[in-house]
C-alpha cells in the first residue's frame, strides 16, 4: 500500500516535470522574454546585461532546473502585463475558480448520480425516457450557449439572478469566498449550473449504464433471493459496484472543470484564473500562461492521486492485488 502510494507519487512528479518542460519551453522560446520586458528603445548593451542578470545566456538545462526550482517555490516571475508577481495574481483569483468548480462538481454529483440511479433502476419509466432525452441536450449544447441562455432567462427576463461577477465576497486571509454572503451565493448559481451541466449529464449517463449492467449480475439476483430490501440492494449492493468507474470519471472531470472553467468565467465575467488566462493570452503574458499550465497540471496530478487512493477504499480486490504487487517489489 505504502509502496503503491510512493510509486504513484513518483509518477506524479514525473508528470509535473514534463508539464514544467512545456511551460519552460513556452516561457523561454515563445518570443524573447527580454523584448517583452524592456522598452523598444533600450540599447542592446542594456538588453545583454539584463539577459545575463536573468541567466538567459546559461545553457538550457540549467535554466530549466532553475525554472523548476523557482516553480517549486511558487515563483513564476513577474507578469509582462501588470509587472505584478505572477504567483500573487494567481492566488488572488484562484479561490473564485475553485469555488466555482467545487459548486459545479457538487451540482453535477448531487443531481447526476441520483438521476442516473433512477433511470438505471426504471429504464422503461417515462420520466427516465424524458431525462435521457433531456440529457442529450445537455451533452450536445456548448457551454457558452447554455450560459448565455441561462443569463437571458434568469437574469434578463426573470431578473432573479445576477448575470455577471462574484457578487459579494468575504475575505478570510488571502482567500475570498462567495459562501458567506447571500449575494455571493446567488452569483454562484448560474455559473455553477453552466459549468456543471455537461458533467451532470455525463455522470447521469454513466451511472445509468453501470446500474443497468450491475442489476443484471448474479450477485444482485442472489441478493434478491436472500430477501434483502430494495433499498439495500439498490444503494448498498448495486450503487457501490458502479462507483469505481464513477470515481474515475468524476476525478477526470473535476480536473477539466477547473481547466475548462475558462469559457464559463468568460461568459459570466467571473474573476477567476480562467479569465486571467484568457487576458494573458491576449497580451502574450507568457509567465502567467506558464504558471497557469503548471497549476492545472498540479491539480490533475493531485486529483488522480486521490482517485487512485479512493479505488482502494471502494474495491477490496484492488487492495489485495496492490498489496501483493507492492510486496513483490
Amino acid at each position: 500500500m505504502l509502496a503503491f502510494i510512493l510509486r504513484r507519487l513518483m509518477q506524479s512528479v514525473a508528470v509535473l516535470l514534463a508539464v514544467g518542460l512545456v511551460s519552460f519551453s513556452l516561457f523561454r522560446y515563445v518570443g524573447d522574454p527580454i523584448n517583452a520586458m524592456v522598452g523598444q528603445d533600450t540599447p542592446a548593451v542594456e538588453r545583454e546585461a539584463l539577459r545575463v542578470k536573468l541567466g538567459l545566456n546559461d545553457p538550457a538545462p540549467i535554466q530549466f532546473v532553475r525554472f523548476i526550482a523557482n516553480a517549486a517555490h511558487g515563483q513564476f516571475g513577474l507578469s509582462y502585463r501588470t509587472a505584478e508577481p505572477v504567483s500573487r495574481m494567481i492566488l488572488e483569483r484562484l479561490p473564485a475558480t475553485l469555488e466555482l468548480s467545487f459548486c459545479a462538481a457538487l451540482f453535477a454529483l448531487l443531481v447526476g448520480i441520483p438521476m442516473g440511479v433512477y433511470t438505471g433502476l426504471y429504464p422503461r419509466h417515462w420520466t427516465s425516457r424524458l431525462l435521457q432525452a433531456v440529457s442529450l441536450i445537455g451533452v450536445s449544447l456548448p457551454t457558452f450557449l447554455i450560459g448565455i441562455l441561462l443569463i437571458l432567462f434568469f437574469s434578463v427576463i426573470l431578473r432573479w439572478l445576477p448575470s455577471f461577477g462574484r457578487g459579494e465576497t468575504v475575505t478570510i486571509g488571502w482567500w475570498t469566498t462567495n459562501f458567506l454572503r447571500w449575494k455571493g451565493l446567488e452569483a454562484l448559481i448560474l455559473p455553477s449550473i453552466t459549468l456543471g451541466l455537461f458533467q451532470l449529464t455525463l455522470l447521469m449517463r454513466l451511472v445509468r449504464s453501470e446500474m443497468l449492467e450491475v442489476m443484471r449480475t448474479d450477485y444482485i439476483k442472489f441478493a434478491r433471493a436472500r430477501g434483502l430490501t430494495n433499498r439495500a440492494i439498490n444503494f448498498g449492493h448495486a450503487l457501490k459496484n458502479t462507483l469505481v468507474p464513477v470515481i474515475t470519471v468524476t476525478g477526470l472531470q473535476l480536473g477539466s472543470l477547473i481547466a475548462f472553467a475558462i469559457v464559463t468565467e468568460t461568459v459570466f465575467a467571473w474573476p477567476g484564473v480562467g479569465q486571467l488566462f484568457i487576458q494573458s493570452v491576449q497580451f502574450s503574458d507568457i509567465p502567467v500562461m506558464a504558471a497557469y499550465l503548471m497549476l492545472i497540471g498540479l491539480f490533475f496530478v493531485i486529483i488522480n492521486l486521490v482517485v487512485d487512493l479512493l479505488y482502494f477504499v471502494v474495491d477490496p480486490r484492488l487492495r489485495g492485488q496492490m498489496g501483493r504487487r507492492a510486496g513483490a517489489h
Binding site: D218, K221, A225, G227, H237, N241
Partner: peptide, 24 residues
C-alpha cells in the same frame, strides 16, 4: 421479499459471481 431468504433460500449456479465482490 420477506418469504425469500426467511422461508425459501436459493443457491445459484455460479459461486464466483453470486457474492458481491465489494463486501466481506
Amino acid at each position: 421479499r420477506k418469504v425469500r431468504g426467511a422461508q425459501i433460500g436459493a443457491i445459484f449456479q455460479d459461486p464466483l459471481t453470486s457474492l458481491n465482490p465489494l463486501y466481506s
